[in-house]
């Protein structure tokens, strides 16, 4: 194969075939994918969760992962947040011509490894190559399906006053990492993206504690945005304790420098868990027993005080609203 991805590789001809056999099957292959049929055929039993997501992250390589591993983790996590065990995923690539073949290989290899670790099979895929400038290096779409393990499934509308709010670890790591690798921001933060597949931990959690009311991964928009979505869907108020929020010193430092709030930074390997207060101790035990949940802690409580709102109780004991952001956070001087 050539050193760079050419338009020919998306043509459906021999070049495409070579790319599929020498790259995609090499890293992603399994019995179903290897058949190279027009569609994948598989069985699932009972209620099924399905989720799709497209990944356009810039830069495509960052400390702690790349767009390939992220594309697997993101979709696997979304399926698992429904109390489901993710089984199969599809992936569609849109590649800008000229992408170094080595880069593509690193990305696909990372996808393969991420899928194996998560225990999911890539059963269908598609590749398109577009002219230079028509896309930015590479975009990946993944869709995942899995069997729902609990009934009723956790849902954003199931939070109740009195429920406890837990988070599985430190917040803002991914968001700050990606910002830090962007050109033009001259700071260095020794921090890595938290990108990881949470499904094994989540399955243990819902199997032992089926009464978990809400599971959500606070990705884009961060913890604050996700909690706002939950409080609106469930018509409850979330009271967060500022002192309890786990934030790495590196992330705190980077945020103070750029005028950002870690509560609005993306996470790719963390989840929020809303559940009856009686289950808190056991839930934290389960979470902390897994390396991906070692920093898990309780950060707040659902109340009926201000339905649809998230209220932060500050270190001083004051209260303030924690609203939704209008758009992405930008570095600021004032």
């Amino acid at each position: 194969m050539s050193e760079k991805v050419l338009l020919d590789y998306g043509s459906g001809g021999r070049a495409s075939q070579r790319l599929v056999s020498e790259l995609f099957l090499k890293y992603l292959g399994n019995d179903e994918l290897d058949r190279l049929n027009d569609a994948a055929v598989f069985s699932l039993s009972g209620k099924t969760a399905m989720s799709t997501d497209s990944f356009t992250v810039d830069p495509i390589f960052f400390p702690g992962g790349n767009i390939g591993s992220l594309a697997v983790h993101g979709t696997v996590n979304d399926v698992a947040m429904m109390g489901a065990m993710p089984r199969y995923i599809t992936c569609g690539y849109i590649i800008e011509e000229g992408l170094p073949m080595d880069d593509l290989e690193r990305i696909v290899a990372a996808m393969g490894e991420a899928a194996r670790n998560a225990g999911v099979h890539v059963v269908s895929g598609d590749t398109k190559v577009v002219p230079r400038g028509a896309a930015d290096k590479i975009f990946i779409n993944t869709t995942g399906v899995g069997e729902v393990l609990v009934d009723p499934a956790p849902g954003g509308d199931r939070a109740r006053p009195g429920d406890a709010v837990l988070v599985s670890g430190t917040i803002g790591d991914h968001g700050l990492t990606v910002l830090g690798t962007r050109e033009g921001l001259d700071f260095e933060a020794r921090v890595e993206s938290d990108s990881a597949a949470l499904n094994h931990l989540l399955v243990r959690l819902v199997q032992e504690l089926p009464d978990v009311h809400v599971l959500r991964d606070p990705t884009r928009g961060g913890l604050a945005t996700t909690l706002n979505e939950i409080t609106v869907s469930s018509n409850v108020c979330c009271e967060l304790e500022e002192d309890a929020l786990p934030v790495k010193d590196e992330v705190r430092g980077g945020c103070s420098l750029l005028g950002l709030d870690p509560l609005y930074l993306a996470n790719e390997g963390k989840f929020l868990c809303v559940l009856p207060a009686a289950d808190v101790d056991r839930a934290l035990e389960i979470m902390r027993a897994d390396p991906l949940g070692k920093d898990a802690c309780r950060i707040g409580t659902m109340t009926d005080a201000n339905p649809g709102k998230v209220v932060l109780v500050t270190r001083l004991g004051g209260k303030r609203l924690l609203g939704m952001l209008e758009g992405e956070q930008l570095p600021r001087i004032c």
Partner: peptide
């Protein structure tokens, strides 16, 4: 003043007004 929650703790007799302090 807002972010620290200080505003919600200030005595009622303290009236807080915001001036022209933002260059934007």
């Amino acid at each position: 003043i807002f972010q620290s929650g200080l505003r919600s703790l200030l005595p009622e007799k303290i009236i807080h007004l915001s001036g022209p302090g933002c260059p934007v």
